[in-house]
Write a protein that binds this DNA or RNA. Structure first.
Lengths: 128, 128
DNA sequence: ATTTGTGCAAATCGTTTGCATCTGA
DNA sequence: TCAGATGCAAACGATTTGCACAAAT
């Protein structure tokens, strides 16, 4: 598969590929993936994690989600869909569809095209 | 007005308040506001800009918009509305409403409440 | 006189970059 | 062999923080 998209199947790319796509849809940050790799004793550097995430994204295997200022999230589900972001836990999850939110692409202004649409519903644990 | 919301009307807060709310809706980053202040010869530090932006946000005068990794944008229009983000120019603009996009609040999961909904349509200049 | 705000510089955090070294075809 | 990948450490940019000084009430 890596070969198919023009990337050398190296140890680290293979390992990261399995971690990302081997267990259903998930949302990861560079740091999270790095931790997981360390735990799994996969020798890989943070720099390589970033390289890989971006390469995968450019090749359409991952999708970036703009959540907020700091961390960048990558979604293994590349289809267009909205997210819940639970602020207290820094957790990003898909919104089960049909949960309201008709999500129609707006017409872009003359001369521009839509790159992607980010819909993030930010949640907080209810106090009372 | 500052007094009304419980903030001392200091020189810099007054100046920043005018810059923010004195000319219709706009979208600013800390850096942009700082530049504007410097140009207008308003003596203010970046730290104070950040303090002020956050205080105003907490008090509901501004609204934060999650655009992407780096810069944080603040919108003087605090109502819930979607945005276009023009990647090449780093420009954030309101989407003229009725442009499609039915924007219905989804039902949050048990025990959570919606803090805010960010809808960002990312645009790129059309190539051909 | 007290409390609150401001400015500076240093510290932090996620991410990127330069470059020497390694590795897969 | 050798282009492409990796790893390290330094560089970066936006934001935050600690603390001395200044300004509102």
């Amino acid at each position: 598969m890596l070969r198919a998209i023009g990337l050398r199947p190296t140890r680290q790319r293979l390992a990261l590929g399995f971690m990302l796509f081997g267990k259903g849809d998930q949302h990861v940050t560079a740091e999270m993936l790095y931790e997981e790799a360390v735990k799994a004793k996969v020798p890989v550097s943070l720099a390589t994690i970033y390289n890989t995430l971006h390469q995968f994204t450019d090749l359409g295997l991952l999708r970036q989600v703009a959540v907020d200022g700091s961390k960048t999230y990558f979604d293994t589900n590349v289809s267009e869909h909205p997210h819940f972001f639970i602020e207290s836990e820094n957790d990003l999850v898909d919104i089960p569809h049909s949960e309201g939110m008709v999500d129609q692409r707006p017409t872009p202004p003359e001369g521009y095209e839509v790159v992607r649409v980010d819909v993030v519903v930010r949640l907080r644990r209810k106090s009372r």
